[in-house]
């Protein structure tokens, strides 16, 4: 298992945020973690990398690629190379006054210790891989000059630069238009297959998780309430909360069959 979270409990000041959460992600697998705000889905992902709020008490086991996440040195190593995380708002992780190229090469230069010039070539290659053109110009741009979809691709490219085995995507496409979202997801899937990467895909959108993920965990009030295959979750939701969540999402009516044009 790439990521294995076992019976994770987390509380901050007598307030229990996670209860007995167990999540597994295998190589090359896309696993969805779905829930409404405050369900603990983001906290779970962050706890996987031991990014917990100050004063939090944690129990249970977390291993990433076989590394037990307790020793600070191991945790640092995992955060630097084995796992990467991307967030909803790419603007919040990119320094607005630094050029894209400087932000994107940071991981390579600091972690792998290669020169800035080498890092730029590597990032440029990755940018092409995430479907961006004119990379030389892009690397000289500032974040405000690019659209959200482009920035999210840049962030993905930067996250992939250290060749992580595990990607934690926290609402990574939620702020994007549906078409852009689909493009970014298609890209992510391609890269994932190529690199045999495991993805923990956190979203509030049950439809999206069902359509995109191999397996889906549904969270409510800090606990996992359902665990099903993505393809089955709408056909046969086995659990009442999942059903309620599925029913709450408005669906488009069936489209009329397209007439064959002569």
């Amino acid at each position: 298992m790439l990521l294995s979270i076992e019976n994770l409990n987390l509380s901050v000041r007598d307030h229990q945020i996670l209860r007995d959460v167990s999540v597994e992600v295998a190589e090359g697998e896309t696993v969805g973690l779905v829930g409404e705000s405050g369900s603990g889905k983001s906290t779970t992902a962050r706890a996987a990398l031991r990014l917990v709020p100050p004063g939090a008490r944690m129990s249970g086991g977390v291993t990433v690629c076989g590394n037990t996440m307790t020793d600070p040195a191991v945790v640092r190593q995992v955060r630097r190379t084995t796992a990467a995380m991307i967030f909803q708002d790419p603007r919040s992780v990119l320094n607005p006054v630094r050029r894209i190229g400087d932000s994107a090469t940071e991981r390579l230069v600091h972690v792998q210790g290669i020169t800035r010039a080498e890092a730029r070539t590597r990032i440029a290659e990755l940018l092409v891989e995430v479907g961006l053109k004119d990379t030389e110009r892009l690397l000289r741009c500032y974040p405000h000059q690019l659209s959200g979809g482009m920035l999210q691709r840049v962030v993905i490219a930067a996250a992939l630069s250290s060749a992580p085995r595990l990607l934690l995507a926290d609402e990574a496409t939620s702020a994007l238009d549906v078409t852009t979202q689909a493009e970014v997801l298609a890209l992510l899937r391609r890269l994932q297959r190529k690199r045999e990467m495991g993805v923990l895909f956190i979203t509030h959108d049950l439809h999206l998780a069902a359509a995109y993920c191999d397996r889906v965990y549904v969270m409510k009030d800090g606990s996992i309430v359902n665990h099903q295959k993505g393809s089955e979750i709408f056909v046969n939701p086995t659990e009442p909360y999942t059903r309620a969540l599925a029913d709450a999402v408005p669906v488009l009516p069936e489209r009329d069959p397209v007439e064959v044009r002569p």
């Binding site: 990398l49 995380m85 994107a104 991981r107 962030v155």
Partner: peptide, 8 residues
């Protein structure tokens, strides 16, 4: 840029 927090 992704997670680059240091310390435990």
């Amino acid at each position: 840029m992704t997670i680059e927090a240091h310390g435990p």
